[in-house]
């Protein structure tokens, strides 16, 4: 036993915002080992400049944003290639945003509708000034060359 045991001192301090009450900075971050699991083919498709949706052969429902099982009937869906031309179903231009996207503002979000497809697809619209976007505007998909395996690997431009 050592009755004089002592913790070593460090020189890291604490960022203090206030003393009454004491308000300190607390940092926290995390790296996930995230699996896209059954959605993986969609992200693989983006690398091949393909937009993949889901089709339910049991009930005929067709999804622009993919899902492994049909939310109408529960059957397993099959992958199919979506058209790369669609229309703006609705839109907004964000002048503020979540912290992660603040540096990208202003950016325009759209929901894209495709002929013959029952649901929509959320994406970015570029190549338009803020508020040039219109409901019904024809748009075309483009893909980044250096795929990041994120949904932003695809984006839309006006036709």
């Amino acid at each position: 036993m050592n009755r004089n045991a002592k913790l070593p001192e460090t020189e890291e301090g604490t960022i203090l915002f206030n003393t009454d009450p004491i308000v300190i900075r607390h940092h926290y971050e995390i790296d996930y080992i995230h699996s896209y699991a059954q959605d993986s083919p969609f992200f693989a498709g983006l690398a091949k400049k393909k937009l993949l949706g889901s089709k339910c052969e049991a009930c005929g429902h067709i999804y622009a944003t993919p899902r492994g099982h049909c939310m109408e009937c529960g059957a397993a869906t099959r992958w199919f290639e979506l058209p790369q031309r669609g229309r703006v179903h609705t839109f907004t231009t964000c002048h503020f945003g979540s912290e992660a996207f603040l540096k990208e503002t202003p950016f325009t979000l759209i929901l894209v509708e495709f002929d013959g497809v029952d649901t929509l697809f959320m994406s970015r619209l570029i190549g338009v000034e803020p508020d040039e976007a219109r409901i019904g505007m024809p748009v075309r998909a483009r893909f980044v060359r250096n795929c990041k395996f994120r949904p932003t690997d695809v984006y839309f431009v006006p036709e």
Partner: peptide, 14 residues
């Protein structure tokens, strides 16, 4: 949804 520019005010604006 989130990675595209996740922001609830944006969703409600759409």
């Amino acid at each position: 949804d989130y990675p595209v520019g996740g922001f609830y005010t944006g969703y409600y604006a759409m």
